[in-house]
């Protein structure tokens, strides 16, 4: 059974600055990590492989050459091999072009039973790439998976988190799952894994290796146009009403009438 995990290298901070000129994230001086949600995807892929007792876990990312570091970290946790999709032609990809490119890589790899993704990336927060890939590949998708109840070579039963609780979904395999943090606790790397990761060959695939149609990748293949990215102004300070509960309730009601109703 071949299991694919898709990961993304993201800046390790929740306090990223935006370049006001280019409307892109300022990445200089920010340490890069594997997108935290993707760590759960890696862990679940490894667990499924261990449960099945055979197969391989292939980790794939699309990014600049330095994204190799993220792939090596995934190998140190136990992934069998890694593929980096890196080409200047991929630059400027939106979620549509990204999911197209990643789906091409999965097709080229062939014979993939399950594709795992984190539910979303901590930098873009779109949660679109996973579902996009399943659409390009024409395989079922289950998003926000919080538990894999049963899995074999032909089907899986998973719990899908919703706002009210969870759905139990049965799906044929191959399928794509995006996972939430409730699904597991990612393992630490092992020493042997770290040593293997250091020596591992990271295969690089370019646009032509994937047979990508040129108008479907990179900026040209991206229908999304980012008009403006900005930091919303901080909210003004709140006000604490104090006094006897009855008086405070009256005051609050008046304020609400004035500010919201009126």
């Amino acid at each position: 059974m071949r299991i694919v995990v898709l990961i993304k290298q993201v800046p390790d901070t929740t306090d990223v600055k935006i370049d006001p000129v280019t409307n892109t994230l300022k990445r200089e001086g920010v340490v890069s990590i594997i997108n935290p949600f993707d760590m759960y995807a890696i862990e679940e892929a490894l667990r499924v492989k261990e449960k099945m007792g055979e197969g391989e876990v292939v980790v794939i990312t699309m990014g600049p050459p330095q994204a190799e570091v993220a792939l090596r970290e995934a190998i140190s946790m136990g992934c069998d091999r890694a593929i980096l999709l890196s080409d200047r032609k991929f630059a400027g990809s939106d979620t549509w072009a990204t999911s197209y490119t990643l789906s091409r890589a999965i097709e080229k790899l062939g014979d993939c039973s399950i594709v795992f993704c984190g539910k979303q990336a901590s930098d873009g927060d779109t949660a679109q790439v996973g579902p996009g890939i399943s659409t390009h590949l024409n395989i079922p998708q289950v998003t926000y998976v919080k538990k894999i109840e049963k899995i074999d070579k032909n089907s899986a039963v998973v719990e899908r988190m919703t706002e009210e609780g969870y759905d139990v979904v049965e799906t044929p395999i191959p399928a794509l799952f995006t996972v939430v943090k409730e699904i597991n606790e990612p393992r630490l790397p092992s020493l042997k894994g770290k040593m293997k990761a250091k020596k591992a060959e990271i295969v690089v695939w370019k646009a032509e290796d994937l047979g990508c149609e040129p108008d479907k990748i990179g900026l040209d293949g991206s229908p999304t146009r980012v008009v403006k990215i900005f930091t919303p102004p901080p909210r003004g300070g709140g006000r604490v009403l104090s006094g006897e509960p009855e008086d405070v309730a009256k005051e609050l009601a008046e304020l609400l009438k004035k500010d919201i109703v009126g």
Binding site: L188, P189, L191, K194, M195, K198
Partner: peptide, 16 residues
């Protein structure tokens, strides 16, 4: 390099 790996990994275990 291996010693550094051991040190880093043990610190990670300690910290996390």
């Amino acid at each position: 390099e291996e010693q550094q790996m051991i040190k880093d990994l043990c610190r990670q275990i300690a910290e996390e």
